[in-house]
Simulated assay, not measured.
Amino acid sequence: MKYENQKTGYEKTLILFVISLAITFMALGLNVAKTPSISKIPTKIIKDSLASVTAFKKVYRVLMSPRCMNCHPAGDIPLQGDDSHLHTMSPKRGSEGKGLYAMKCANCHQPGNSPGLHTPPGNPNWHLPPANMKMIFQGRSPDQLARQIVDKKQNGHKNLQQLIEHADDGLVLSAWNPGEGRTKPPLSHSEFKRAWIEWLNKGGYAPKKL
Rank of each mutant, 00 (worst) to 15 (best):
C71D: 11
K57L: 04
L50R: 14
K58R: 08
K44V: 12
K44I: 11
S52F: 06
F56W: 08
K58V: 02
S65R: 02
T43A: 13
T43E: 15
K58G: 06
K44Y: 11
H85D: 13
A55R: 06
K44L: 12
D83M: 08
A55P: 03
P91R: 04
L50H: 12
P78N: 14
T54R: 14
T54E: 11
H87I: 02
L86M: 12
K92G: 10
Q80F: 12
K47D: 14
H72D: 02
L86V: 12
G81I: 00
H87K: 07
Y60D: 13
F56L: 06
L63K: 04
S84D: 07
K57D: 11
P73K: 00
G81Q: 05
C68I: 00
L50S: 14
H87M: 11
R93Q: 10
P42R: 08
K57P: 01
L50E: 14
L86R: 07
K47S: 15
P73E: 11
R61L: 12
S65A: 07
L50V: 11
A74S: 14
T88Q: 13
Y60L: 02
L79A: 06
K92I: 11
M69W: 00
I46Y: 12
K58T: 05
F56I: 00
L86Q: 15
M89S: 15
C68D: 01
I77A: 09
I45M: 08
L63V: 03
Y60C: 06
H85F: 14
N70K: 00
D48E: 09
D48F: 04
Y60G: 03
D83I: 01
K57Q: 14
M64E: 14
M69A: 06
T54H: 08
S52C: 03
S52H: 09
V53Q: 15
G81W: 05
P42F: 05
C68F: 01
F56C: 02
I77R: 06
P91L: 05
K44E: 15
K44S: 13
M64L: 05
P66L: 01
D82A: 02
